[in-house]
Computed example of a mutant assay.
Amino acid sequence: MNQDVMGTSAAATEYAAPVQWAPWLQRGLGGKHRRPRRSVVQMIKGMPPFPRRTLKYQGPGMPLMRGMDVERWQRQMCKKGYTLNVDGWFGPRSSKVAKSLQRRAGLADDGEIDAWTWAATWD
């Protein structure tokens, strides 16, 4: 029988359980469920990280965007004084409020929440 340096046979290592030296690599850390990192400026301002997707209203008859990121943005806009229902749906009213914010911040008023508009929300 062949034995390697450790004194185990080749047949024993072939059927042994794999060594779990980095279990976080096997779980898939780094997929789309990974929490986005915040920059130093975001941490100082208390701004949450950008949600990795552009929030936009696509028009009547099209499905609305929905989620916790939309709700977080709507809550912040209510704190800034805008009249908006905090329901988590990005509809025509949210788009109108986004355009108003973009005009005030000097951005292109397209009604979409991109990284620049997200940062202007927490200024």
Rank of each mutant, 00 (worst) to 15 (best):
P63F: 06
R38L: 12
N85G: 03
K45A: 15
Y82T: 00
Q26G: 06
R75K: 15
P51F: 00
R34N: 07
G61L: 06
T54M: 11
K80D: 00
R66T: 05
V86K: 12
G28D: 10
H33A: 08
Q42C: 12
V70F: 07
G88A: 15
M68L: 13
L55F: 12
E71M: 15
H33E: 09
R37W: 07
K79D: 04
R35K: 15
L64H: 08
G30F: 03
F90M: 06
Q42Y: 06
L25M: 10
G28P: 09
G28T: 02
V41W: 02
G30L: 06
T54H: 02
R27H: 02
P63T: 02
K79Y: 03
L64F: 14
G81L: 04
P49M: 07
K32E: 07
L55E: 06
M62I: 03
D87L: 09
L64I: 10
V70K: 02
L64P: 05
L29N: 14
P63K: 10
N85Y: 04
G30M: 00
R53K: 14
K79R: 15
Q42G: 08
M43N: 09
G61Y: 06
Q58T: 12
G61E: 09
R66E: 12
T83N: 12
P60R: 13
L25R: 14
D69R: 03
G88T: 05
T83L: 09
R34F: 10
V70I: 13
L29I: 11
M43R: 15
L55A: 08
V70H: 09
L64V: 08
F90Q: 04
Y57K: 02
P51D: 03
K80N: 11
D69A: 13
K32F: 12
H33W: 15
R27N: 06
T83D: 11
R27G: 01
S39M: 08
Q42D: 14
F50S: 02
R52Q: 13
P49I: 07
G46D: 03
K80V: 00
G46P: 03
G59S: 13
L29V: 12
R52N: 13
G46H: 06
D87I: 09
M68K: 13
G88P: 06
K80P: 03
R52A: 03
L25C: 03
R72F: 01
P51Y: 00
Q26D: 06
T54G: 01
M62N: 04
M47D: 02
K79V: 05
V41T: 13
K32H: 05
G46L: 10
R37D: 14
G46V: 08
